[in-house]
């Protein structure tokens, strides 16, 4: 697999796509999100697996998002995700609240190719009252009186994440973040940015193979050095907390957010660097 330029990878995402991304502590595709802003993506239906962070807030602020299904949106220590909060207050995006294990479970159902999967808990939460697509049934394996939640399979159109490296076969090394495999298995298309390409076949290395996603799932790969920035990436580099704090401060207002976009996302320099 020959790496695609980053902006060409973003061009593979059609407007309106159901796009799943991992959270800020698990291979979030930050450079890819900036490329989606540059390509002026519109109407994206995001899925935060199981929560969302910087990339989602950036896409919401840039007007790329129609709806968001997630269990939370947070910038971690930097606090509230400001463009998300503004969009909820304005009612400008459709927000579909879930709870973390429900997102995982819906993807696991899609991964197995079954129409639904049960999950304990959740009964009595107002989340359930606002999910017409979630159903409670009586456990058919018990003697009655055991209500349990059924969740529909969720197969995103596209999964996107930023990993450490890829090989020419499209195999992707995600290390201990093996929950990414579930997102990749469940999604119809997988687009990945990586720090670097490596020689050989990652799946032939017995030590690396358990942390590798098989290239059979992967459509395209782009090189993006420090592509998780300002988020950290495994043991490669740490989160840039000062930058996230700067983002959180600027994004509090629409004007500040425009300043941020001009400086870090749409500027010719940023584009060339990515």
């Amino acid at each position: 697999m020959t790496p695609t330029p980053l902006d060409a990878l973003a061009a593979l995402v059609p407007d309106g796509a159901l796009l799943a991304m991992p959270p800020d502590n698990s291979l979030a595709p930050a450079a890819f999100a900036r490329a989606l802003v540059r390509r002026r993506a519109r109407g994206l239906r995001l899925v935060g697996v199981p929560v969302a962070g910087y990339a989602t807030d950036l896409l919401i602020g840039a007007g790329c998002v129609a709806s968001l299904q997630t269990s939370a949106v947070t910038l971690g220590e930097a606090g509230t995700a400001p463009r998300f909060a503004a969009a909820v207050a304005a009612g400008s995006i459709e927000l579909i609240d879930a709870t973390c294990p429900a997102i995982h479970t819906m993807l696991q159902a899609a991964e197995k190719g079954v129409p639904f999967m049960p999950l304990r808990g959740v009964i009595g939460s107002d989340i359930l009252a606002h999910r017409a697509d979630w159903k409670v049934i009586d456990n058919p394996f018990a003697d009655g009186g055991d209500p349990i939640l059924l969740l529909p399979a969720l197969a995103p159109d596209i999964a996107a994440f930023h990993a450490v490296c890829a090989d020419a076969h499209g195999n992707i090394y995600v290390g201990r973040r093996r929950e990414l495999a579930t997102i990749a298995h469940a999604s119809r298309r997988v687009l990945v940015t990586v720090e670097r390409m490596v020689e050989g076949n990652l799946l032939e290395d017995e030590r690396l193979a358990p942390g590798v996603i098989n290239g059979v799932y992967v459509e395209a790969v782009a090189l993006a050095a420090r592509g998780a920035w300002p988020i950290g990436l495994l043991d490669e580099y740490a989160m840039d907390a000062a930058h996230i704090a700067e983002y959180a401060r600027l994004a509090r207002t629409a004007e500040g957010f425009s300043t941020y976009l001009a400086q870090y996302v749409t500027a010719p320099l940023a584009s060339a660097a990515e």
């Binding site: 269990s71 939370a72 509230t80 808990g121």
Partner: peptide, 27 residues
């Protein structure tokens, strides 16, 4: 309540979201 105040889904003040609370509290 980790979701928000006012009308669903927190139109008065939105909190980050439920995270895993709707599951963990039971389990």
């Amino acid at each position: 309540n980790l979701i928000g105040t006012g009308e669903w889904p927190g139109r008065a003040a939105r909190f980050p979201g439920s995270f895993g609370s709707a599951f963990m509290y039971f389990m």
